[in-house]
Every structure is written in structure tokens, then in C-alpha cells.
Amino acid sequence: MGSLIDLKGYGWSILVEGTALTVEVALASLALSVILGILGAAAKLSGRRVLMGIATFYTTLIRSVPDLVLMLLLFFGGQTLINWAAPKFGYEDYIDIDPFMAGVLVIGFMFGAYMTESFRGALIAIPRGQIEAARAYGMSPLLLFRRITLPQMIRLALPSFGNNWMVLLKTTALVSVIGLDDMVHRAGSAAGATRQPFTFYLVVAVDYLVLTTISVLVLNWLARRYDRGYARRSP
């Protein structure tokens, strides 16, 4: 049992630095996915055929292709595209994509599609009458969004937003495949050097479990906060 817990000096590297990198990738991707999700939901509800078509193509494609395939396509494909295009604009050196940037762009782009669906569902669930009433009061579109739409959208989108976040967090494990030195990658190196793969992958598993547990607690707290004023229906 002693050898199972002994991390042979890799503890700090995996548990602190690796976890920090994983959380950074996750939060940066979340920010990108929320921006894309708002744009996507706005496009789907815009009523303009071209915008709706692009948004539908985006969400359908992303949701029917595995994460790993998308990640490899966008990482290797992006690298090829940049190095194919750059000389045509007079840039001659070989360009290497930074794995952190690539990971954030890929995960953010993927979960933008899931966020689009969450936000679209929340927006259409807000009663029309409230928006008409706010307009009748003479609210500007910005004030209407800030006072009427946004607070309710957050409440309605929170359950599926939380679900997306949990899946996103676990998807960050894939960035180790494109070479980012996150906790999975560090655990892999430590496993190779010490010949104790079980120990180090178990550490990573527990680490993820702690992160998802913290997420559940925060999301439940947020849900209680935004549900204030809405009586829970008794079963």
C-alpha cells in the first residue's frame, strides 16, 4: 500500500501545476464557448435564413463527430492551413501552434455548439408578454436585455449550462493528446518514469473527481440563488 501513495516527487507537478493548467484550459474554453453560444443562439432565433442555416450546420456537425476527431482535425488541420497560407502572405518561417491556444480554441469551439442549444432553449422559454411589457415601458433594448432577459435566461439555462460545464471539464483530458502538459500528460510521464501507471492515473482520476464535486456544489448554490422567488413545486 505504501508504494501506492508514494508519488516519488511528482506530486507537486501533477496536483498543483497540472491541475492549474487543466482548470485554466477549462475556464478559458468556457468563456469562448459562452460567447459562441450567445452568438449561435442569437443566429438561430434571428429569423434570417442564412444565419439560421450556418448555426444549424455548426451545431449538427459538432454534435455528430467525436471530440477527439474534431480536436485532431482542428489541431493538425489548423497547423497545415496556417503554414499553407502564411507563405502566400509573405511569411516564410514554419509556424507551430501553441497547444494551450489550440486546446482552448478547439474545446471552446466544440462547446459553443452545446451552449447554443442551452441558450436558445432558455431564451424561447421566457414569456413573450414580459418582453412586450418591458417595451411598452419604453425600455431600451440594452436595458431590456439586462433587466428582463438576462436574469431569467441565466436561471433557465443553468441546468444545461452546468451539464455542459461538467462534460467540458472532462473533455480537457484530451488536450494531453495534442501535447499540452496538463495533469494527464504529466501523469503519463510520471507513469513511464516510475512504472507505476495505476498510481498516477488514479491520482488524476481523484483530482478530476474533486474538480467535478466542487463544480456540483457551486452549481447547486447558483441554482438556489437564481431560483429565489420561484416556489419549488411540492412533489
Partner: peptide
């Protein structure tokens, strides 16, 4: 609560 990739690595490696 944990990624499938880690579960797979735990078993295989």
C-alpha cells in the same frame, strides 16, 4: 465524475 480517457488508461496501462 472522471473522464473516460482516464478510466481507459487506468485499466489498460
Amino acid at each position: 465524475g472522471t473522464p473516460l480517457l482516464i478510466q481507459l488508461f487506468l485499466l489498460y496501462y
